[in-house]
Design a protein around this nucleic acid. Structure first.
Lengths: 106, 106
DNA sequence: CTATACGCTACACTATCTGTAGCACGGCGC
DNA sequence: GCGCCGTGCTACAGATAGTGTAGCGTATAG
């Protein structure tokens, strides 16, 4: 499953506008969550799975591959997934959501 | 479809942490896109559908209901969907993604 | 009474996600 | 060598969510 990931066109990028591709990529299940859970130090695939409420490894692996192809996540040499500088930058934009969420459902 | 939306628990909020509920809500297909398309003036359901690349009305309607229950979107008296103050605030956090996306896939 | 547009829904089909199991590879103790 | 874990990653059946087309009920015109 999950095949046509990032290389040339992500679903939603039919218009060619990068923002649409990004919105689509982040709008898939667990994408935002993965970015969020990786905000600290790198996690192994299993630690990530635990952090993500035991989501099925199938999707996690698919998202991880997509996010890697997009250049946001990388697999460290000694194992464990971490954010690339680009991914960390993206993560910075997600962080404010934390405080927002607290106010939203407090 | 689309039943257990926002009221008490959104999928992913099993831990009770608001950020997870928000991340989950925004991580559904078209959620972010809808927020993005509504950044300007209110749109009618059909205009929104057109803006969203002719996505099926089924999901759009489902997302719209969820976002309305979450308090981010509202249906104006004379028709047309617009952002609530809270939704506009959330949208402000999505906006920076535009420039980021441009640099990402230039 | 048409004609149009609104928000919204039904329904069959397809894509995507879930949950459980298990693979190949690599270290580590024995 | 041997098992024993822990990696990253995959298979596959069943469940869920999304797609695309059609159409409803209401309202506002002409």
């Amino acid at each position: 499953m999950a095949k046509q990931a990032a290389s040339g066109s992500v679903r939603g990028s039919r218009t060619g506008r990068p923002i649409m591709a990004l919105l689509d990529l982040l709008g898939r299940r667990w994408s935002l969550r993965i970015l969020w859970e990786l905000r600290g130090e790198p996690l192994t695939s299993r630690a990530l799975r635990t952090a993500c409420d035991e989501a099925s490894p199938t999707v996690l692996q698919a998202r991880l591959t997509e996010l890697r192809e997009a250049g946001f996540v990388e697999l460290g040499e000694g194992g464990g997934y971490g954010l690339t500088p680009l991914g960390r930058e993206l993560c910075e934009m997600v962080m404010p959501l934390h405080r927002f969420a607290e106010r939203w459902k407090g």
